[in-house]
Amino acid sequence: MSGLAWLVEPFAHGFMVRATLAIFIVGIVCGVIGVFVTLRGLAFMGDALAHAIFPGVVIAFVLGGNYLVGALVAATLVSLGIGVIGQTGRLSNDTAIGVLFAGAFALGVAIISTQETFARDVTGFLFGSILGVGRDDLLLSAAIGLGVLLLMLLFRRELTTVAFDRTFAASVGMNLWAWDQLFLLLLSLSIVVSLQTVGNILVLAMLVTPAATARLLSDRLPVALGLAALIGALSGVAGLYLSYYAAFASGSSVVLVATAIFVLALLFSPKAGLVTTRVARWLHHGHPERDRFPDRSDEIADYASTPAASPRLDGGMETG
């Protein structure tokens, strides 16, 4: 088979075209919001929301309602609940998240175990069923994904300020609670979009891994956001090929590709890679004396000529 035919063959199937588009959307949306998730140390929160959404989806399924609405209601209740538990002042956020996400997930399992299609439904939820993505699912994912990206674009400065310096954000009158809730809503939406493609266990990887890789490759937030989207989308599409030709489960193939890219960046990132920085240090060993006695004469000259320093020095000499 020629290279081109190898690349094109999967798309002879309609379900593969839809799957590719779906994972492309998930890769971009999760990559972008994932940068903020990792910067704010909210990986556990993301995992919790993914699990907490379960009872919402199940109840919507049993009642015959829209699973999206159920998922959002459940995610909102859990994020509010975490805030309420935090108010006792005795339990950390981590603890509150742990209690609520396990409880919510158990509720979902309990309800769905009364249904006849129990095993199939749970498997689909846990690991996704990307090959079953329909036209309507795809359109809904695209609409939600675009909405999330647009809101993040509009509120990028506020989201950055709240993530970087909460004290400052509060001091300029920003309502931290409201901005946190907006962020959690965007995060919940991103997770909901991803459920069908990668499932609720592996969505965490889509949120954290491309963002972590991007952070290893850049010190600038806009660049990191772009890279995370790119890496997320790339992992998604490459993972689908892996799934198609190696017959691996699709969700796990995507995550394996994302993890492999992360390991490459961890070792070989130009400025932060474990191997690259060591090689750079090793090459530097040709000039050991430069390392041991860095030339600081410029700095010292700067210090002496700083206007604020001079009067003090002069004054000291006069009185002495």
Binding site: L39, T160, A163, T167, G173, R215, S218, D219, R220, L221
Partner: peptide, 26 residues
Amino acid sequence: GCDRRVVYVPQRSAVDWTFPISVLDV
């Protein structure tokens, strides 16, 4: 509550120093 006319500078900013943000952006 906080008012924009009042500028508060804390003793030591409790920020994440690894945050990918430049001096100018701050």
